[in-house]
Design a protein around this nucleic acid. Sequence first.
DNA 1: CTCGTTGTAACCAGTATAGTTCTAACCAGT
DNA 2: ACTGGTTAGAACTATACTGGTTACAACGAG
Lengths: 138, 138
Amino acid sequence: MKQISSRFSIAVHILSLIATIPTECTGDFIAGSVNTNPVIIRKIIGMLKKAGLVEVRAGVGGTSLCKDTDQITLLDVYRAVKVIENGELFNFHNHPNPNCTVGRNIESALRAEMRDAQTAMEQKLSNVSLQQLISNFK
Amino acid sequence: MKQISSRFSIAVHILSLIATIPTECTGDFIAGSVNTNPVIIRKIIGMLKKAGLVEVRAGVGGTSLCKDTDQITLLDVYRAVKVIENGELFNFHNHPNPNCTVGRNIESALRAEMRDAQTAMEQKLSNVSLQQLISNFK
DNA sequence: CTCGTTGTAACCAGTATAGTTCTAACCAGT
DNA sequence: ACTGGTTAGAACTATACTGGTTACAACGAG
């Protein structure tokens, strides 16, 4: 990857809309605010639903949050939309040569540092709730 | 992206090899330790060279580090191999609708949090030097 | 019943990754 | 000076992800 997919930012956008103006939230209205195609919105809402963040009452504009806005963190959203492979932000090259000192040792050493770095990032995301984000809107 | 390219882990592997067994480090030998194709190695060494981390004396096995191993951090390597687009880990969807409260406010609010998260991750990488990494090899 | 909406499937263009083949240039040693 | 090993990089491939589109089935509310 070059970047984490905009699915994440779109998902946050969608949840913010549902939180602030729930009555208007049809797929087409959301698509208009995000400025993309309604199908993209439906796909992402599908992922948020699977993750238990929203529920969709069959019918028009029937999407609502399953939790309070202060109980949903950016990390929840980031995990819901599966923007990284298998929970691992960093890819590691396969099967370094075990007959070489470096090849034998690098994987465990470097993976530990990668995990630390990823955790630090995700920790930051978990510190921000949807409520904190939308409370500054004016 | 789904994951940060393995160019990063391969680059760290390459630098570790040059640091520990400089005399053996032909492209083919490195490729054998990393377990990939020599051309991949050459491409990555080219990036490390542009970033000023290594220099290549034309000739056999002529690659050497430009700095001490404790002056090279994982962040330097990560930046050298350009695994993320334009310095931004997170992609943000384009042009939310400014006629909507959420569309108008979300970009600056969310970008700030994204930047915080990315910085936390990169900070962790900058805390680890090549020296620290290879000092545990046995 | 019908219209608007939701939920998917199928498909597309663009682009990144990891890898291969091939060729040119260059250094060192005999 | 020639040759073999090495470095450098262009060109091409297969695969996969992204963001987007069209199309269609199912369903609810008025």
